[in-house]
Design a protein around this nucleic acid. Structure first.
Length: 423
RNA sequence: GGCGGGUUGCCCGAGCGGUCAAAGGGAGCAGACUGUAAAUCUGUCGCGAAAGCUACGAAGGUUCGAACCCUUCACCCGCCA
């Protein structure tokens, strides 16, 4: 079997690392315990978080033991970012988000194996009780302000917005986590996104100074698209969330089916467990038969299955085929159409109210306002049952209804929704 | 505590008494071209059919008229202590 480090390398998952040869020796010496942390800065994880999370899964499958850390404590402080000081969230909010995120995290690792079973941790458990004096004497003393000031983010912030003592301290909290996990579980590797490099190294150094331990650091590249834009900001501008209430499985699938050729192969390596040969084949397909979008379909399918499970995945694929298929919508049988409508966004109107195309677009959520709906119609971007509607006053007739109650409304080429029509 | 600067639409950012629903950029959206791709070009981009309404941190005030002036409040930042 291929060595985990070699696999991570060809997948393009290694951005920065401490001594890889030393890490390889420790990995080969037996199950290694490693961790990655996830701060509750939002009510849900998003697609980008999955890169480090799946990294834990990959290590576990290679026979190592992952610790999944929910940042109940670090999430209360906030990792400094370039855009300026964060607004603190209340304790309640952070606690609730941490709980939700914990629920999402635990789905991606196995807990049962006696040797490599995952450990779920929350840094609030050890940070919450820590007294200020303990913290300053036992942790703070080992950090050099000079070094901290030299960090990129800190430098940028000092040039612009400045930074609070709270955010400045974030590094110490995360470093302290590593030390705790090292002591408690012998954790000897921390992984994360490349923006975490400095924080991870802080922990590596702390462990060395305090306990004389030699531990490792590994970061994955931040996922961007081919234009360097931050990943997951596309498709309507919002984040792609794991929580199905925030991003429906259908929307999730659609997002990945629409990934550009320039990104799809890289995403396959980052977000799936597909073996190298299969990814190479899909790469060749993208090269030679791009219009088939085989790689995109596979990416969307695999990634949806990973996050939402097999059942949901079948549903959304069926729905996507129904809505984007070449066939006539009128030819879809009733149960297929019902199933598709259950996945896609939907709205409802009553024929008696005399709804126009504008009402259909707005109630289905395809456009945010009537003005936007009007614009869509006038631009030729509004469709009902795949027929373009150019008249703002257009109203559906009973004969337009599919199986007596559905209208398939579309805005532009991709955004489709169902509208259920009552008499 | 003192002095100074700031808070503009999804984001960045101009505006500094009328012609400002607010320049410019980015993002977004639509059309053409395609492959539910990218790039490109074109159009669009607060709500409303319109009258008009809401909007430039919040609340008041001055004025015929305020994003622009004044007062108070909140928050942010810099320098000094």
């Amino acid at each position: 079997m291929e060595h985990i480090l070699d696999e991570l390398t060809w997948r393009g998952l290694i951005a920065q690392s401490t001594d890889l040869d030393a890490l390889r020796r420790d990995l080969d010496a037996g199950p290694l315990t490693l961790y990655a942390g996830f701060d509750p800065t939002a009510p849900s994880l998003h697609a980008g978080n999955l890169v480090p999370l799946l990294m834990l899964t990959r290590f576990q499958r290679a026979g190592h033991r992952p610790i999944v850390l929910a940042g109940g404590a670090t999430g209360m402080v906030g990792d400094p970012r370039d855009q300026g000081e964060r607004t603190l969230n209340t304790l309640d909010v952070v606690a609730e988000w941490a709980e939700r995120i914990r629920g999402q995290l635990e789905r991606f690792v196995e807990f049962d194996d006696p040797r490599t079973g995952a450990i779920m941790a929350n840094n609030l458990d050890w940070t919450g009780q820590l007294s200020v004096l303990e913290f300053l004497r036992d942790v703070g003393k080992h950090f050099s302000i000079n070094v901290m000031l030299a960090r990129d983010t800190v430098k940028r912030r000092l040039e612009t917005d400045g930074m609070s003592y709270t955010e400045f301290s974030y590094l110490l909290l995360q470093s302290h986590d590593y030390l705790r996990l090292f002591r408690e579980y012998g954790c000897a590797l921390q992984v994360g996104g490349s923006d975490q490099w400095g924080n991870i190294l802080g922990g590596v150094e702390l462990v060395r100074r305090v306990d004389g331990g030699s531990v490792h650091a590994l970061t994955a590249p931040l996922v961007t698209d081919a234009d360097g834009r931050k990943f997951g900001k596309s498709t309507g501008g919002g984040n792609i969330w794991l929580d199905p209430a925030l991003t429906s499985p259908y929307a999730w699938y659609q997002y990945f089916v629409n990934v550009g050729d320039a990104d799809v192969v890289r995403y396959l390596r980052l977000f799936t467990f597909l073996p190298r040969e299969e990814i190479d084949e899909l790469a060749a397909d993208t090269e030679q038969r791009p219009h088939l979008r085989a790689a995109q379909r596979r990416l969307a399918e695999e990634f949806t299955r990973l996050v939402h499970g097999d059942h949901e995945t079948r549903q959304v694929i069926a729905a996507s085929q129904a809505l984007f298929g070449r066939g006539e919508l009128g030819e879809l049988d009733e149960s297929t159409l019902d199933a598709a409508m259950a996945e896609a966004p939907t709205g409802a109107v009553r024929l008696a109210d005399g709804p126009t195309i504008l009402d259909l677009l707005v109630t289905s959520g395809l456009t945010p306002s009537r003005g936007a709906a009007r614009r869509a119609v006038n631009e030729g971007g509004a469709y009902v049952n795949n027929a373009r509607i150019a008249d703002e006053e257009w109203q559906p007739a009973v004969t337009d209804l599919l199986h007596g109650r559905w209208l398939v409304v579309r805005r532009g080429k991709r955004a489709t929704a169902g509208v259920e029509v009552a008499p």
